[in-house]
Design a protein around this nucleic acid. Structure first.
Lengths: 107, 107
DNA sequence: CGGTTAATTAACTCCTAGGTTGAATATGCG
DNA sequence: CGCATATTCAACCTAGGAGTTAATTAACCG
């Protein structure tokens, strides 16, 4: 699968986005990450694997802990992609669109 | 499903992103959209339904044609979400991180 | 060593996603 | 009307996603 699809896919889940939000506050172990969620540890472990495969987190190895850290590099790619559409949601563009429609009606 | 997950899910497919890119150049009918893709018209129709459900496109009704138009509003939400992580990929932050690590080593 | 804690792997269920083909539903046109 | 065009709907297939429980691996600790 292409990189961008993998990243978007990883982000298309509220649990995984919540994990990223948690990691934005600092690195955490799997148990710490899983604690607030109503799902099993194993399910969280799977989510972490998805995030890791998408490059959104990296994992360390300290004794029996695997601390996870946020890696926002793929998010920059997302930001780059999405801003190519920025003109379509900016107010100025909406005004232009309204103006063009107005012109069209008048003719 | 929550809105953001739906939008991210819709974007997690290269065909759908290509459709959005096509619509950025102007509205198009289903056949026009489907033309460059190596999949069936029905498959494209399904993709359009996904994009519509995510609010990324709107569709008109002209005779037997259903012209699709890009609606970038959800992309603004994506941009808003992703920029909350901007500090994690900006160079200044990387420098800060390196600095903090340096401090830590020195103590 | 033996037990405890941390995390992953395995095997399974259920459901949805993306694709197919074939039939159905409009709408325009001669 | 009857046919061609545009699009959707329906039924089906296969693969993978998200969750579960049970078993396994790895590392520390008394």
């Amino acid at each position: 699968m292409d990189r961008l699809s993998e990243v978007f896919g990883a982000l298309a889940d509220p649990t995984r986005r919540a994990i990223l939000a948690r990691l934005a506050e600092g690195e955490a172990t799997v148990n710490q990450i899983a604690e607030p969620f109503p799902i099993s540890l194993q399910a969280v472990s799977k989510h972490l694997k998805v995030l890791e495969k998408a490059g959104l987190i990296t994992r360390g190895k300290e004794a029996q802990w695997r601390p996870c850290r946020l890696d926002a590099a793929p998010l920059r790619e997302v930001a780059n992609w999405v801003t190519t559409y920025q003109r379509f949601w900016e107010e100025r563009y909406d005004e232009l669109g309204a103006y063009l429609k107005q012109i069209q009606k008048e003719n």
